[in-house]
Design a protein around this nucleic acid. Structure first.
Length: 264
DNA sequence: ACATTATCCTGCACGC
DNA sequence: TGCGTGCAGGATAATG
């Protein structure tokens, strides 16, 4: 379920584990295909996000990489009530544990002894993501712009929600061929991608439902925020900008939400 | 190079 | 209450 903003929230929440040692890696779900003994007594040197991947870097054992896919989440706690969906537990010397809760088992956890080298595109929240770089990628693609935005090898971290949201902000129809975007439209989309992702991070990410597989931010005394969505999940509701009914369509097998009046 | 479909899994909302 | 259907924030492989 999580996209870049939700993964970013998890990574920030995990910063306290940097400097700790993994005294025991308890692999509960054999299907993860992870050998915990390879990480015994590894010291955690960093926790970083790369696209939608959570990269736990160790001092001398490479990286442990978690991908939450549709339904995964991580929790840092001293003791977590046993969830039937807990698939992996990192026991730390601090007494804390990191729980990988993965109801649908789509999420992954893998050890890269020599370091993680993913085939991912530009990070949209770094200086490398410029109007120029987006234009260079878009002009080479004949995919619909919505599908283009979901391609992790081009831009890393955009998912189904924020692709629809950014296109709505920019007033660009999701069906448009990426290469057909004008210079002005690319500039607009660049700005809106960045703002939509930053707004979501500020709002602690998006929670759609209340089931076990839904994302729930681990916020402190601040209370929970909720990222505002303008079109995603709003089929048959009036567009906030023009009142036209928001429609849902399928692109590459995934739902796209948009306003046919103010996106063209 | 593109779109489509199936697949991996499980849970939930909905209509009957 | 139960059952069938379709849906889900992701990614990949196979097929056309």
């Amino acid at each position: 379920m999580p996209e870049l903003p939700e993964v970013e929230i998890f990574v920030r929440g995990l910063q306290p584990i940097v400097g700790s040692t993994m005294v025991h890696t308890e692999v509960i779900d054999a299907r993860l295909n992870l050998d915990g003994s390879n990480l015994a007594n590894a010291r955690i040197a960093s926790v970083e996000r790369r696209g939608k991947h959570i990269v736990i870097g160790t001092s001398d054992r490479g990286d442990l990489v978690v991908h939450l896919r549709m339904s995964g989440r991580l929790r840092l706690a001293r003791s977590e009530r046993e969830s039937k969906y807990t698939r992996l537990i990192l026991h730390l010397d601090s007494g804390d544990c990191v729980y990988f809760i993965n109801p649908r088992r789509l999420g992954t956890a893998a050890h890269y002894p020599k370091g993680f080298t993913p085939d991912l595109g530009i990070e949209p929240l770094t200086a490398a993501f410029t109007i120029e770089s987006l234009a260079a990628l878009a002009t080479r693609s004949h995919s619909p712009i919505k599908t283009f935005l979901l391609d992790q090898r081009k831009i890393a971290g955009i998912g189904n929600i924020y692709a629809s949201e950014a296109l709505w902000r920019s007033g660009i129809a999701p069906t448009r061929e990426a290469t057909s975007l004008s210079r002005e439209e690319v500039a607009l989309l660049h700005k809106d991608l960045v703002s939509v992702l930053n707004d979501a991070i500020d709002g602690q990410g998006t929670t759609i439902g209340n089931s076990v597989s839904d994302y729930h931010p681990d916020v402190g005394e601040q209370g929970e925020f909720q990222t505002h969505l303008s079109v995603y999940g709003r089929e048959s509701e009036p567009c906030e900008r023009c009142g036209t009914i928001v429609v849902r369509m399928k692109q590459a097998g995934r739902s796209t939400y948009y306003c046919s009046e103010c996106q063209s």
